[in-house]
Write a protein that binds this DNA or RNA. Structure first.
Lengths: 209, 209
DNA sequence: GTTTTTGCACTGACCAGTCAGTTCAAATTC
DNA sequence: GAATTTGAACTGACTGGTCAGTGCAAAAAC
């Protein structure tokens, strides 16, 4: 899944160790927060010696920063893929947004810990990885903004909508609904959650029908 | 302002110190997270000696927990107030939801640090204040759920909506849009943001008109 | 034979929580 | 109304523990 191409095509063994460290770090940091999670814990959960962590990453912060980049890269790719697939199949922009909602849900379903940790850090200030976070956030939100803008250009959406704000709101809708789903009603199906959000997106809750 | 009544009518000085500590703690923890914030920092920012923190609160965690309860209490009261005011004035349930969106925005506008800190902690597990957080979350979401349920009962909303999920999604919409507003476009007006969210709530973005 | 991992002892900074002592405003005494 | 007492509120130096990061020799993997 990650061995062949990737960024630097390093040796496979190294990549596998890094992956194990990502996985260990993501759950621990999601549960406890960055500062409350120790490097010893991460190493132990990954089944690796502490020295190995420092052989593979310059510091705890760097490990975390690369983890963030890695994770949001996956999400962005998935959103873009959903949008493009819909376009290729001749769907409307609402279809594209709907497909992106589903892609978001699938992502959160698969990586709940990452999502949680991301949300916890996103609006913080004064942290070393702030700029990383901003860049990476913009990449993801931009995909939604593009769909909205194209919808406005094509006459499908009202010209009066506020693109950045509406994009934020849509992202928030999916994010919070999905995190609540995973935290408080994990037994429900993804389709169920998707249906509820679809209805909200299409304004089938109130007002018109 | 706080001398006479309050909860326990304790001495004024004590209450004032606690308030200063809340204010210092909320911004520091919002910026850095709970574990990365030291008690020395909180004391210094509050202009108080470290010992005073421990004279007023049993521990750092307890200070934080009481801070959470305090803050969400304010929010819940504000939401409930908005809902009741709309009802008294004979508004529809959409009006009530709209008023609650505005109340939420006003709250976040006033206490952005608290909101940020709340979001960062809400979906964590394994923390001592988890139960506090759950209780307090349910109080706030319940107000929205009630409005939705009443809307369904009164025929204003579709019977098919999923009340808890839709409530989560609405809360998320406001939360994320408002945090993005405060973080990335703080110069915009509250009315502006409110208008964009109103439009989304009423389905005036896509589909019907 | 080079790269990667291990295991573990060590350091220095940092930090939550403690406690003996100080402050001061109100209550009490004369 | 001045002198004295009281005690809640506050102070800040100190302690015991924790943790990020280092150093390195030997083993394992490739």
């Amino acid at each position: 899944m990650e061995s062949s191409s990737a960024t630097s095509g390093g040796s496979t063994r190294r990549e596998a160790t890094r992956q194990k460290l990502y996985e260990a770090a993501v759950t621990l940091i999601a549960e406890q927060g960055f500062s409350a999670t120790t490097v010893d814990e991460i190493a132990e959960r990954a089944g690796v010696a502490k020295g190995t962590v420092y052989y593979n990453f310059a510091s705890k912060s760097v490990l975390f920063e690369e983890l963030l980049r890695h994770g949001v890269g996956l999400l962005t790719a998935s959103l873009r893929d959903a949008a493009e697939r819909t376009a290729r199949e001749g769907g409307t922009k609402v279809d594209a947004l709907d497909a992106m909602i589903r892609a978001g849900l699938v992502f959160i379903d698969r990586y709940p810990a990452f999502t949680q940790l991301y949300v916890a850090e996103l609006w913080r200030t004064n942290r070393t990885w702030q700029s990383t976070l901003m860049v990476v956030r913009q990449q993801a939100v931009a995909v939604v903004e593009d769909a909205l803008r194209e919808g406005v250009a094509g006459g499908e959406f009202s010209e009066e909508i506020d693109v950045p704000l509406t994009a934020s709101a849509l992202v928030g809708m999916v994010l919070v609904a999905a995190l609540d789903w995973k935290s408080f009603q994990p037994e429900r199906s993804l389709d169920d959650v998707h249906a509820a959000l679809s209805r909200l997106l299409q304004g089938r809750v109130s007002g018109c029908r």
